[in-house]
Design a binder for these strands. Structure first.
Lengths: 195, 195
DNA sequence: GTCTATATATGGATAGAC
DNA sequence: GTCTATCCATATATAGAC
């Protein structure tokens, strides 16, 4: 080992990760377009120019934040795999999504929902969109009717309600998450009953 | 009548309304922050300066678009009034919301959802937020449990799915709207069954 | 009511020193 | 890896002529 043992990932600093972390919060809170590189740099205590050592453009920072999300979405579908053709499999997928949303930063959920336009402009955005569509179609089940597909999308939406209305509903985040999952499962059971 | 009979609303031109119309579309499609006054002026075939005759600031244009929305939301709750304490009344409210979303421009729905940050900064934004909360609480019914309130919010969300996934679901807008209303009613019936 | 012209600020991005 | 300094485009907004 000729390298400093404090190094991680062969990098001397963790600035890149800190940029992503701060940018995620600011993009989610204030919007991508309304967040200047100056603000990000200020919060980190560095200059704008430092950001450009780690990322080629502002869009690349957004891309860096979203990288991995696409994979996570695809992994959830793959993990359940062939069991998706059964009601139990689809219920399992819904629980995976709920867990994913609880584990990952709430900022990421809001970032994706409230910056759909800018994300859509990224090449990565189209891939995320496709992955999400596959997930929703899997949730609707095979040979799904229009009603089934809307139920699947609404069940997915129910999980988002926990994030969206977290402040309005006076309950703990965990209580809200469990209740949202319950409602989502109710809706999904509607899919299975009417087919 | 000393005034030109072609006048409407005591104004000589309809530029103000055309500004609001074009701005609504651009704000919804590209985001508020990413839409410059120059783009709005270009689409109208006027200069930026002309916009400032009709609106004091860019935010005022956003406010002008949203004006009336708050009233519409409050009107829906008031229209159903005391019947809100019955399941039938809450179902009626849900149908009113569905009609409202179908009647009003789809642009308005997307504008509100995807520019929550900027709208929240307006004083009008806080009022819209309050009105919507009252609507959601009314939908949940009196003495609603946490589960009931999440069902109400999810039912509301179901109606939005029609707008959000309009392109993914290969069906007519009217078919999607009807199906979304059906799902929303299913969820709301869950409220009434479990209380 | 709309124009031209301009003030003023800030945005993203780059060059080159250290 | 981070800095200072700067380029250049575009943003909101205003002044004053027509």
């Amino acid at each position: 080992m000729t390298q400093d043992s404090t190094r991680v990932d062969n990098r001397r600093t963790d600035t890149r990760d800190r940029i992503l972390q701060v940018a995620l919060r600011l993009f989610a809170d204030n919007g991508y377009a309304a967040t200047s590189l100056q603000k990000i740099a200020d919060e980190l205590g560095v200059t704008k120019a430092a950001l450009y050592f780690h990322f080629k453009t502002k869009e690349d920072i957004l891309g860096g934040i979203l990288l991995g999300h696409r994979g996570s979405v695809e992994d959830m579908v793959d993990r359940v795999g062939p069991r998706l053709h059964t009601p139990a499999g689809r219920e399992e997928l819904l629980r995976l999504i709920s867990d994913y949303q609880a584990t990952r930063s709430q900022y990421l959920i809001r970032l994706i929902r409230e910056n759909a336009v800018e994300i859509g402009n990224l090449s990565l955005g189209a891939q995320i969109r496709d992955a999400q569509r596959r997930l929703l179609d899997a949730l609707a089940g095979p040979d799904a009717t229009l009603l089934d597909r809307i139920r699947a999308r609404t069940a997915f939406c129910a999980l988002h309600v926990a994030v969206k209305h977290g402040d309005d509903l006076d309950a703990s985040a965990e209580e809200i998450r469990e209740a949202a999952l319950t409602v989502a499962l109710e809706i999904l059971h509607g899919v299975d009953q009417n087919t």
